[in-house]
Design a protein around this nucleic acid. Sequence first.
DNA 1: TTCATGGTTCGATGCTAGCCGAACCATCGC
DNA 2: GCGATGGTTCGGCTAGCATCGAACCATGAA
Lengths: 227, 227
Amino acid sequence: MKDGPSIVRIAALIGDHTRTEVLTALLGGKALTATELADVAGVTRQTISAHLAKLTDARLIAMESQGRHRYFRLADDDVAQLLESLMGVAFRTGAVRLRSSPRDPAMRKARVCYDHLAGELSVQIFDSLVKRGALAVSADGLALTGNGQRFFNKHGIDTIPLQQQRRTFCRACLDWSERRHHLAGGLGAALLKNILAMRWAKREHDSRVVTFSKQGEESVRAMFRLG
Amino acid sequence: MKDGPSIVRIAALIGDHTRTEVLTALLGGKALTATELADVAGVTRQTISAHLAKLTDARLIAMESQGRHRYFRLADDDVAQLLESLMGVAFRTGAVRLRSSPRDPAMRKARVCYDHLAGELSVQIFDSLVKRGALAVSADGLALTGNGQRFFNKHGIDTIPLQQQRRTFCRACLDWSERRHHLAGGLGAALLKNILAMRWAKREHDSRVVTFSKQGEESVRAMFRLG
DNA sequence: TTCATGGTTCGATGCTAGCCGAACCATCGC
DNA sequence: GCGATGGTTCGGCTAGCATCGAACCATGAA
């Protein structure tokens, strides 16, 4: 009874404290060095080196050398999506982290998911885009309509070069805390980038949390006509 | 740097050959007894008992006693979706099963994903439903339109009782072989049930493969106006 | 060249967890 | 009641693997 690809190896890799520490750290989107990751995970450099080799070998993360530093990042946003998907099940089955941090409400409201926005606000944005006909379901899950293209252009996001990138331009990503979809892919990444560039929000140090200024949140709500 | 639910435990559970054997067997949708699962996984009854206890404890599977038998099934189609999601990443990263079975092409064409249809045909069906406006994206990912409701009624599927069920009525599930979405949830389950009831297709013994008769496939293609 | 810093390799260690044999409990059919 | 079958519990064995100390390579700075 052997059906489909072998998922054991992937799951076993994620099923280790240290490696999950690494993966969730990289879920923040920033590329980190081996030593930084060792600190995050609380192990020695030898140990992290072994783990990073395994993760790289399985293509869950990718490495780039710069001088004597080696920067690691998630290999693909597929991996990010898988991690969020796992969190969804973990959340539902009650495997909530014991020492729940006081940051939790902030995480729920807005956080980084690899390179795009996740959490309550991002789900509302996604809803709004669908409702106004900017996004439409297609064969590949999701597509930007002409309407949507005009909308993004008006707000300073040029969608043409994004669509020419090799990576998926526009995809729906399931949000573990909201259990609803938010916008991912190149377009999702561009949107987050824009929000940060406009200084509507800033990233918390060493965390996935994204904090909106009062005015920034109002701007976003106005832009997407949220309640 | 502790963010979000703890995914380690879930991943570690899936990251074991025997338990994955169990989970993928249950992905076929049929509830199986402990002894059957022991045979599938190729271990003794003591061993499977321990594994089943762990999986049950983590709420990945659920158990129902009937006389001296204990039937196990996946706890939720969230779990099925997670497994398919894992297969997607495993597939992409090249972790394809070594002894790839000759059944593979059949698996790609049509297979069971917990309780609904997956594979090439199911993706085409999903596309068709979206294209004709039977399905629409909504806050919860997907919704049946009035149009769609009439369509399913016409083909002998009463959607009203399905919508009253507690489980998700209508959801999109990512297909690992096609990397596109197909229909899941109560509606997806009802559709598969209908296809089997009409004898358009039958399930292969001890496998997830679904085989369409020539006439059955034509009927489905006609029903959904596929090419 | 020399030293400091970032990373890797190797070998040894210790813990975890999967596995089975044996014994035991529960249910069914007789 | 009694045997047969389905499943669990317990104890002990073993293997795999995460971890670290120590030594080693690579790069950059002085």
